[in-house]
Amino acid sequence: MKVAIFSDSHGQGWRINQVLNEVSGINYLVFAGDKFADLNEVKLDGFEEVVAVRGNHNFNPELPREKVVEIADKKLFITHGDNYNIKYGLDTIYYRAEELAVDIVVFGHTHSRFIKEDNGILFFNPGSISLPRDGAAPAYGIIEINNGEITAEHYDFIK
C-alpha cells in the first residue's frame, strides 16, 4: 500500500494536486492539517481512503484533531501536532502513540521534514508542501507498507 502524506499547504492546494497527478499507485491520501480547504483543489476520488485532520489554521469543526486508521495491518495515528507541543520534542506525542498502540505517527505543524523510529514506532512529518522552515524545498512524503514492512521517504516538490 502506498500512502501519500501532505501537511501545511497554506493556500497552495494546487501543489498537492500536481503531486497526485505525477505520482502513480497511491492508495491512500493523508493530510496532516493546515488549510484543509486546499483539498477542494484536489481530485479526491480513486483513493481507498482520504484521511484529514484539523491543524491550528483550520477552523472546520467537522474535522477531527486526530485520527487513528489501519492501513495494511498497520495502525497510523494522524495529528497536526500543535496540540502535542511537537515543536518542543516528541515526548507528549510519543506517550499518546504508545497509549494508542500505533505503528506510525504522522504529524505536521513544524513545516520541517522529520523521520525517526523510536521503540518500534515510526514518527513521520512530511514537511510543508508550501512553506518549508527547514531550509529545504517544499516537500511531501510517501509511506509504503508491503508484507508488514514500512518504508518512508521525503520528496521535494518540483514545480
Rank of each mutant, 00 (worst) to 15 (best):
I5L: 13
N21E: 12
E41W: 03
V50T: 14
K2R: 15
I143A: 00
K159V: 14
H111P: 07
R54C: 02
K87D: 08
N17H: 03
F31Q: 00
A37W: 01
R113E: 07
I142C: 04
H111V: 09
I150S: 09
E48I: 15
N146W: 06
N146H: 13
G55N: 09
H57E: 09
S128K: 04
R15S: 02
E149N: 12
N125S: 09
K74H: 13
I104H: 10
L76K: 05
R65V: 12
I158W: 08
F31E: 03
L29G: 08
N58D: 15
Y155Q: 06
D118H: 14
S24C: 06
E62G: 06
V102S: 07
I16W: 00
G148A: 06
I115N: 05
V3Q: 01
K67T: 14
Y155W: 08
V69H: 14
F107W: 00
E117R: 13
N56I: 05
L100Y: 14
F114W: 09
F47Y: 15
F59D: 05
A139V: 01
H57P: 01
R65E: 15
A152M: 00
V3S: 04
G108Q: 07
I16F: 00
A139R: 06
D38V: 01
K75S: 10
I142V: 12
G120T: 03
N119F: 10
A152C: 09
F36C: 02
P138Q: 14
N17W: 01
Y94N: 09
G108A: 09
G46V: 11
T110Q: 00
P132W: 08
A139Y: 03
L63F: 01
D73M: 00
F124M: 07
D134I: 11
G13Y: 03
F59E: 11
H80C: 07
D8V: 09
F47A: 13
S9T: 11
L122C: 03
I71E: 07
Y88F: 14
V3C: 10
L100C: 12
D8W: 02
I26M: 05
I150L: 06
G127N: 07
P138H: 08
N17R: 04
V42S: 02
K74G: 10
D34G: 00
E66M: 13
E117N: 10
G13M: 00
I104K: 09
R96P: 12
L20K: 04
E153R: 15
V53E: 08
V69N: 14
F157R: 09
I121N: 05
V51F: 13
N56G: 00
G148K: 04
K75W: 14
D103Y: 13
V53H: 12
D156G: 05
A32W: 00
N27W: 06
A101F: 10
F36R: 11
N85G: 09
V23A: 07
R133K: 15
N146K: 15
K75A: 10
I143N: 05
L29E: 09
V30L: 15
A52S: 15
H10Q: 02
A32Y: 02
A37Q: 12
P64M: 03
I142H: 07
V42P: 02
E66V: 12
V105I: 07
S128A: 11
H109S: 02
E62I: 14
F107T: 05
V105D: 00
G25Q: 04
G33R: 05
G135D: 08
E99A: 11
E62W: 12
R96K: 15
V102K: 10
N27H: 15
I142D: 07
N125P: 08
W14P: 03
F157M: 07
L90K: 04
I115H: 04
